[in-house]
Simulated assay, not measured.
Amino acid sequence: MPVTTRLATLADISQLNELIALSVRGLSRGYYTPTQIESAIKYIFGVDTQLIIDGTYYIAEAENVIVGCGGWSKRNTLYGGDQHKEIEDPLLDPEYDAARIRAFFVHPDYARQGIGRQIINVCEAAAVSAGFSSFELGATLPGVPLYKVMGYTAVERIDAPLPDGEVLEIVKMKKG
């Protein structure tokens, strides 16, 4: 099954939010509790429209079906969608800062078929073209194995408190 990538557009947001919820519910079981999953979908996981506006968010499609998404950022935010941010993201300096690898989600029916890896390769190449030489991300627990295989190293465990009292474990990882 050939998978192609393209830049996401604002018109894709509703389909992306559906994919994100489906991905989190399907791939986070066994890593997080059901209440953590639902809380994270409500308060953290969602589309970050700034990535789409910046032209750094990609969609993976197979047979005209969105099977994955992910991006990179030249801005400071490490993780989270629009609902998780309160202010505009300041720009990073590629000479000193690491590009952020952001918001990776794969449809559960297409998991472990190389889609996440394909999107990461596209993102890293684009970030290098923009002058970045290192990368940083906030990984969910189900994403850690993929990022490790892609050369990322865990550097910090972050307990992200959510407004309803739930806490979501995130792993800060770096490469380069």
Rank of each mutant, 00 (worst) to 15 (best):
G81D: 04
P90T: 08
Y96L: 06
F104M: 12
P108W: 13
R102M: 07
G81S: 09
E86G: 10
F105T: 01
D97N: 06
D89T: 05
I87S: 11
F105L: 12
N76K: 04
D82H: 09
F104A: 10
A99E: 00
Y79I: 10
P94K: 10
D93A: 07
R102A: 01
E86N: 04
N76T: 12
E88F: 05
K85H: 15
E95K: 03
A99K: 00
A99L: 03
T77V: 14
K85T: 07
A99W: 00
D93H: 09
L92F: 09
K85I: 09
G81V: 09
H84I: 02
Y96I: 04
I87G: 00
Y96H: 13
P94N: 15
F104W: 04
T77E: 13
A103E: 08
P108A: 14
G80T: 11
L78Q: 13
P108T: 07
D89P: 02
H107G: 03
P108K: 14
P108E: 06
P94M: 12
P90K: 05
R100L: 02
E86V: 03
D109W: 07
D89R: 04
D93Q: 14
H84M: 12
H107Y: 01
G81W: 11
H84F: 15
L91A: 15
T77A: 15
K85W: 08
P108H: 15
L92N: 13
D97A: 03
L91W: 07
H84T: 05
Y96G: 01
L78E: 14
I101G: 02
K85V: 02
